[in-house]
Design a protein around this nucleic acid. Sequence first.
DNA 1: TATACAATTGAATATATGTTAAAACGTTAA
DNA 2: TTAACGTTTTAACATATATTCAATTGTATA
Lengths: 103, 103
Amino acid sequence: MKNTEKNIKAKRLEQVAKILKTIAHPVKLEVLELLGKYEQLSVSSICSKIESGCEISMMSHHLAKMKDNGILVSEKDGKQVYYRIADKNLLKIFNCVENCEFL
Amino acid sequence: MKNTEKNIKAKRLEQVAKILKTIAHPVKLEVLELLGKYEQLSVSSICSKIESGCEISMMSHHLAKMKDNGILVSEKDGKQVYYRIADKNLLKIFNCVENCEFL
DNA sequence: TATACAATTGAATATATGTTAAAACGTTAA
DNA sequence: TTAACGTTTTAACATATATTCAATTGTATA
């Protein structure tokens, strides 16, 4: 295999790893599920709906990281910032993991 | 929602997060792909087949972690230890992530 | 039994991530 | 224009993860 092909494969693995790393956290996963259900929500309403407790400041950190990695997008409207999922296909990841026996 | 239900949901999210965290690494992902293709491989043959370079000792650490979290199973045969995927459904996670636009 | 081989372990270190609390920013409405 | 609100930012700290290397274990074979 040529070096360029190797690098393409390596980059692909790193991208996948980065996405998984970004969402591999109970609060972030719950945010994804919430946004799957409600389409878009402000930071404070995410905090109030979430059952894993999370302070606004912490939530803002989580949301920022997910946004930085392309998983969420946001839009400002007055005082609030509304977040939604960049691509809902990602939600399939729940079934994917939960179908596994070893869980 | 009752407290017990909350705890069940919280545990579920933590389990999913744990699985994702465990595989969210380029080498570990490549190991999964390899084992998807070859069914089972010894530690040293995994190392030699893998394109992200990885020393045997490091690989052993990676494999142990994946095994501890139920993702891999192993069987000893003479000097070698053969690893395979506990449940191949997990491999669907690649499509799941790679189908997303934002990648 | 001594040697080589395959793999694991443990300790040390580096790096990354999660968490908290306080301060700062931008927006709205009194 | 100042006060309140929603959100973000920053810095400090704690915790977890990745990496390296040397030592160790278990197995097979000369």
